[in-house]
Amino acid sequence: MYHGAHWSVFYFMLDRFLAYFLVGMILWFVYKKAGNLLPAMLAHASLNYISIIVRTLNR
């Protein structure tokens, strides 16, 4: 739980605090369930990829 709050504060975007916190919690949950960091890393990379696609399509 600490990590979700840590990253949401690290990015210091108060309007997105809750979203970053929730994503951090979901990634932490994926890591804990899998017992391996790779699935959480792949989920994070997928979210970043989706973000890039959405920004590209909105231009």
Score class of each variant (00 low, 15 high):
1 M>P: 07
1 M>T: 10
2 Y>H: 13
2 Y>C: 12
3 H>N: 13
5 A>K: 11
6 H>E: 13
7 W>Q: 10
8 S>W: 06
8 S>K: 00
9 V>N: 11
9 V>C: 13
11 Y>V: 14
11 Y>N: 13
12 F>V: 08
14 L>C: 08
14 L>S: 11
14 L>Q: 07
15 D>K: 12
16 R>F: 13
17 F>W: 14
17 F>I: 11
18 L>C: 04
18 L>V: 15
19 A>N: 05
19 A>V: 12
19 A>E: 14
20 Y>L: 13
20 Y>A: 10
22 L>K: 02
23 V>Y: 05
23 V>K: 07
23 V>M: 07
24 G>W: 01
24 G>D: 06
25 M>W: 11
25 M>Q: 11
26 I>W: 12
26 I>L: 15
27 L>P: 00
28 W>Q: 09
28 W>T: 05
28 W>H: 08
29 F>W: 15
30 V>A: 10
30 V>I: 11
31 Y>P: 01
31 Y>G: 06
32 K>P: 00
32 K>F: 05
32 K>W: 02
32 K>T: 07
33 K>T: 11
34 A>D: 02
34 A>R: 13
35 G>N: 09
35 G>I: 08
36 N>H: 07
36 N>F: 03
36 N>W: 04
36 N>T: 03
37 L>H: 07
38 L>W: 14
39 P>V: 00
40 A>F: 06
41 M>F: 09
41 M>P: 00
41 M>Q: 01
42 L>V: 04
45 A>H: 07
46 S>P: 01
46 S>M: 05
47 L>A: 05
47 L>C: 03
47 L>R: 04
47 L>K: 06
48 N>H: 02
48 N>Q: 03
48 N>K: 07
48 N>V: 04
49 Y>C: 09
49 Y>G: 03
49 Y>V: 11
49 Y>M: 10
50 I>S: 02
50 I>N: 01
50 I>E: 08
52 I>A: 02
52 I>L: 09
52 I>T: 00
52 I>Q: 08
52 I>F: 08
53 I>H: 01
53 I>W: 05
53 I>V: 05
53 I>K: 06
54 V>I: 06
54 V>K: 09
54 V>S: 01
57 L>E: 09
57 L>Q: 08
57 L>H: 05
58 N>T: 03
59 R>K: 08
